[in-house]
């Protein structure tokens, strides 16, 4: 791997992160009204108390000073105190991350597996009825917002047929441990992950189908077919392998976009992960928490993009060193 390329990417990612911290900082200074006053539910709060709270959150200083302060705290890993949970934002978020990663992991896995298989079938049978059926379904799925999916799934499988729980991550106050607990969580995961999967699956179908079609029209496949190589062997040895590359890119991009699906699904099913936390922070106008969540989402996306870039160069040596081809592919 080219060191110059990697260094360049690292620098770019770092600059982006820096800019993100600035945007993150600035947005929350644009809030109408007085965010500090919102922290107090009691209307009789005195001006002194408000001022004291401003000092505590460093909001009494001029903007530049506030930003420097913010960056200093960030460097120390401090994201402030949540207005609403009264705990350090970092702690609140850290607790939620594994739950969200679990949900993303399962959804992505299901989407890739099911999507690739269906896409491969569609591409292989290009032009047939199977193809158009799969295409039609996937485009329809792609058009349904995940929150709407979530609602429909919930109404169907948690209410009318109460097979799955209405939401949450575990049965409240169950006292389950070990394998029971794992099964309990798995059961709570089914509906939220499917509401995400059904949306992303469309992309995987489209992408696998088109790369499958590309590959099938390549001369070497035609040759292989002419030589009488078994169909399944062509499928697995040549076609799928070539479809693999765009899959990695789209997965990277998808994780970035998945932040959206995660927020919707976690909100509908009150899955206590980052997405629901973000939604609650918005609803309760908990600005430090909102800022923290946004930062986590943004940093995750930057890092993922960086990782995808690296992976891509590793797999496909044709990628130009300055990385242009990756983004414009």
């Amino acid at each position: 791997m080219n060191i110059k390329f990697v260094a360049r990417k690292i620098l770019a990612s770092f600059l982006t992160l820096l800019a993100i911290t600035f945007v993150n900082f600035a947005i929350f200074r644009m809030v109408p009204g007085d965010p500090i006053r919102m922290m107090f539910k009691d209307p009789r709060v005195s001006i002194e108390d408000i001022e004291a709270m401003k000092v505590k959150y460093g909001l009494d200083k001029p903007m530049m000073g506030q930003y420097i302060n913010y960056m200093k705290n960030l460097a120390k890993g401090e994201l402030g105190i949540s207005f609403w949970q009264k705990k350090p934002v970092g702690k609140v978020i850290a607790e939620r991350i594994p739950r969200t990663l679990g949900l993303i992991g399962l959804s992505l896995f299901l989407a890739v597996v099911i999507g690739t298989i269906l896409g491969a079938v569609a591409g292989w049978k290009g032009g047939s009825k199977t193809d158009s059926a799969i295409m039609g379904i996937s485009m329809t799925l792609y058009s349904v917002p995940s929150f709407a999916f979530g609602i429909l799934l919930m109404l169907a499988f948690a209410y009318h047929f109460a097979i799955f729980p209405l939401g949450g991550i575990e049965t409240p106050a169950s006292g389950f441990t070990g394998i029971r607990k794992i099964f309990d969580i798995a059961r709570h995961m089914v509906l939220p992950s499917f509401s995400i999967v059904l949306w992303y699956i469309g992309q995987y179908i489209l992408i696998t189908r088109s790369s499958m079609k590309d590959v099938l029209s390549q001369p070497y496949i035609v040759t292989a077919r002419a030589k009488g190589v078994r169909e399944r062997r062509i499928l697995t040895r040549h076609a799928l392998r070539n479809a693999f590359l765009p899959l990695i890119t789209i997965t990277g991009v998808n994780i970035a976009f998945m932040t959206g699906g995660i927020i919707e699904a976690e909100t509908v099913f009150s899955w206590p992960g980052l997405g629901r936390l973000f939604y609650d922070a918005v609803m309760k106008r908990d600005y430090p928490l909102l800022q923290g969540c946004f930062l986590v989402f943004a940093v995750a996306v930057v890092i993922l993009n960086f990782a995808v870039d690296l992976l891509y160069t590793r797999i496909d040596p044709r990628v130009r060193i300055n990385g242009e081809a990756v983004n414009e592919g």
């Binding site: 800019a19 947005i27 909102l290 996306v301």
Partner: peptide, 19 residues
């Protein structure tokens, strides 16, 4: 690049909440 890097829905939500 910078704008494309930002997570879209969270950014929209934050902006909508603030504005």
């Amino acid at each position: 690049d910078f704008f494309m890097m930002l997570p879209h829905l969270p950014l929209m939500i934050v902006l909508a909440a603030v504005m």
